[in-house]
């Protein structure tokens, strides 16, 4: 084997409607069905690890990795608390979490595991794990998204995940929890009237899904900054999931892409996508941003070139 054994990747949205109120609209129901399809695929696979990167778990002290063997709580979403509570009890792969942390450190990243009773696992991770792995048949791992991290750091984090999967000899399913366009309506809406916030968001989402459908993951990674500028609310510095996802999967365009659902979630773009490594690559992009293997920290410029 030349690389780590990553069976496939799931891209799914962070909002709780598919878990808590799938019956509230056709769209939420379709998203729920798409999660179901992914759940079955995972069940039928030989996966022994589900690795989640969640955009709704921000961190500051480097990259945090969940390492409580059985985190348990009743989670409530900040905005959608009225849809109900989300009780959870998950099974985490502690050994993998530690290997991932070590791999990140050896590539120059600040990283630590967290294992505390009552640690608040984020809505996106809870929704994904409850829908994709309801019986906890497969142990999981969740990694945070550092608020300040940009391209280099995020790509190196993806490569660290790859190192750890390989080193541990795992057969992994990689899950990325993220919206496409992430602008929600700022008022309460009737779920049956949910739609993508704007035509522009919708067009960009569809363009991204075309790339996903063609398996052009590395191309999406290269388009990340453009996507961020066009359709991402500026909560964080960049649209990082594409970088992490592609770096973790091996930075190429060789996938069979399946867009299982694309629906509005309170105005944001919610898509469930499967990417399975395949042969035969497509794409027409040329890239001149350097690949990066090791993180050396921010480059200071203030003390350079001064008179």
């Amino acid at each position: 084997m030349t690389g780590p054994d990553i069976l496939f990747e799931v891209y799914c949205p962070p909002h709780p409607q598919p878990l808590l109120s799938p019956e509230a609209s056709d769209g939420y129901g379709k998203l729920r069905d798409a999660y179901e399809t992914c759940r079955k695929r995972i069940e039928e696979s030989e996966a022994d690890l589900i690795l989640v990167y969640s955009t709704t778990w921000p961190s500051i002290i480097g990259h945090q990795i969940q390492a409580h063997p059985e985190p348990e709580w009743v989670h409530v979403d900040d905005d959608f608390h009225f849809l109900g509570s989300m009780p959870y009890k998950f099974r985490m792969d502690v050994e993998f979490a530690e290997a991932f942390r070590d791999a990140a450190k050896s590539r120059g990243l600040q990283s630590r595991t967290v294992a505390y009773d009552g640690f608040p696992i984020d809505t996106g991770s809870v929704v994904a794990l409850k829908l994709l792995n309801p019986e906890n048949r497969i142990p999981a791992c969740i990694v945070s998204s550092n608020m300040y991290a940009n391209r280099a750091e995020t790509i190196v984090l993806g490569k660290s995940a790859r190192d750890a999967i390989q080193e541990q000899g795992k057969k992994a399913v990689v899950v990325v929890v993220s919206s496409l366009s992430n602008r929600m309506f700022t008022e309460h809406i009737d779920p049956t009237e949910d739609r993508i916030h704007s035509a522009k968001d919708d067009e960009w989402n569809r363009k991204i899904l075309e790339f996903f459908g063609d398996g052009r993951l590395e191309d999406l990674s290269q388009l990340s900054r453009e996507i961020h500028g066009q359709i991402r609310v500026q909560k964080v510095v960049a649209y990082k999931p594409a970088w992490w996802m592609s770096a973790t999967m091996g930075q190429h365009n060789n996938y069979t892409g399946e867009v299982l659902a694309y629906e509005a979630l309170h105005g944001s773009g919610g898509a469930v996508v499967l990417l399975t490594p395949a042969s035969g690559s497509v794409g027409d992009k040329e890239f001149d941003e350097d690949d990066v293997e090791h993180y050396h920290g921010d480059r200071g410029v203030l003390d350079k070139g001064a008179l």
Binding site: P58, S59, I60, I61, V114, Y116, D117, G118, P120, D122
Partner: peptide, 10 residues
């Protein structure tokens, strides 16, 4: 439990 500083705030 602080999601960012769980080591110091529970």
């Amino acid at each position: 439990v602080d999601p960012v500083f769980p080591n110091i705030f529970r």
